[in-house]
Computed example of a mutant assay.
Amino acid sequence: MSNNSNHYEIPKPEQTPEYYKNRTYFPTEHTISLILETAYPDRQDQSVIISYLSPEMCYTNTLSYGDPYNPIHRSTLHKHEYFELLYVIRGHMYQKIENRRHLYPTGSLCLLNRNIHHAEEFSSYFQCAFLALPQILINEILFPSEPFFFSGEDFIQGSLLELFVKNNAQNNRLFSLEYVDFIPAPSTENPHMYDCFEKLIHTFTQPKIGSTFQLKCILLEIFFDLLNDKLYQTIPINIGSDFEAEIFDKITVHMTSTNGRISRSELAEKTNYDGNYLNRIVKKYTGLSIFGYGTSICMKEACQLLMETDLTVSQISEQLGFTNRTHFYSLFEKQYGMTPAEYRKHS
């Protein structure tokens, strides 16, 4: 996997697929899929290279900062209707998982269940793979209906992965918000994990007879390595509740529909929950107060208007509901370290 995502030729689409809209929920669209993201925050255009691989399609695209599909512009956490395994290939990546900000260095992995709200940050250079693993596929690989032929193949029995997958089965809500971090053991490298993801890319881009079985074999190799305590320190984590996650989703909908210009009391009226309780939930999921979360959404909308329209700064300020232009300038400069005019000039 090179800095251009991989060694294989992946076609560019005629237009960026709908997948990269600002969504909070991603359904299962394919049996298995692999997304490669390479972020360059230090480049002037803050571009992100996206490669999407599945049995049905393969494409790659470079999204500049001004592209509305660039995942940099996602303002909310999201979740999937599948398990997701992320693998940091190069650099280091910050990811928000529910109420905490985590740092994942090169070589680390994280397995998230279907209910975890999360989002990667694009504040540092990284190249990362995101592997979508539907429940039915994991069951076929780890818990086949027919026994394995050889001893030692049933390595999953009694392991952390078996407990994690079974606890998070389709109808089991007992452990609804779980994920597992796999951090490389000190002074240890695992080139085999890198090779496994190389083989996944090759199989997606150059399929042939038997590629379905080859994909499943590669996934077994990945899971086997993850359970090797000489290679990875395993940290299982259980947090939060579905109820609070649903409330946070509602808060985010109201926030985005008003460009973040909604007060705590207005949110309380719209959701029928106490404002202080709502503030605690927002703090838990974003690390910000309701005001801070709203401001971040509002300033991102201001950036979009600065880049994509010819509106004056005064008009943008007014459109976003500011009666005091100085206050708008102050919030923007605090958020981005430059005035709106300077931001437009550099975008």
Rank of each mutant, 00 (worst) to 15 (best):
F164H: 07
S159P: 07
N168Q: 12
L177T: 12
L177V: 06
A185I: 00
L163D: 15
L163E: 14
A185D: 04
K166C: 04
S187D: 14
V180H: 02
E178T: 03
P186C: 05
R173G: 01
Q170F: 05
N171Y: 14
L163N: 12
F175Q: 13
A185E: 12
L161D: 06
V180I: 15
Q170T: 10
E178G: 06
N171W: 05
L161S: 04
P186H: 10
S159L: 03
A169L: 09
S187C: 10
Y179V: 11
R173Y: 15
V180C: 06
N168A: 14
Q170R: 06
P184D: 05
S176N: 15
K166A: 01
S159A: 11
L177S: 12
L163K: 15
R173C: 09
L174W: 01
E178N: 07
L174I: 09
S187I: 07
L161C: 01
A185N: 11
L161P: 06
D181S: 12
S159W: 04
L177M: 15
A169C: 11
E178V: 07
S159I: 09
E162D: 11
P186A: 02
V180M: 06
K166T: 10
F164K: 10
N167T: 00
L174M: 04
L163Y: 11
L177E: 09
L163Q: 14
V165P: 00
L174A: 12
D181V: 06
A169V: 00
N172M: 14
K166R: 13
S176V: 10
R173A: 13
S187Y: 13
L163P: 09
L160K: 09
S176I: 08
E162A: 00
S176M: 01
S187M: 00
P184I: 00
T188A: 12
L163V: 10
L160E: 13
F164A: 03
L163I: 01
V180K: 01
P184Q: 00
N168K: 10
K166P: 08
V165I: 07
P184R: 05
N168I: 07
E162I: 05
F164W: 02
I183K: 02
K166V: 10
F175Y: 15
V180N: 02
V180E: 03
L160W: 14
P184T: 02
I183Y: 03
F182R: 03
L160C: 03
L177P: 09
D181T: 05
L160I: 04
R173M: 13
N167Y: 11
V165C: 08
T188Q: 13
T188R: 13
L177R: 07
E178R: 03
N167K: 11
N167S: 02
V180Y: 08
P186Q: 01
F164P: 08
Y179G: 10
S176K: 08
S176H: 13
N168V: 06
Y179T: 09
T188N: 14
V165G: 10
E162W: 04
D181G: 05
N168H: 01
S187F: 01
L161Y: 02
L163R: 12
T188F: 07
A185K: 07
N172R: 15
N168L: 04
L160Q: 10
D181P: 05
E178W: 00
E162V: 09
A185W: 03
N168T: 12
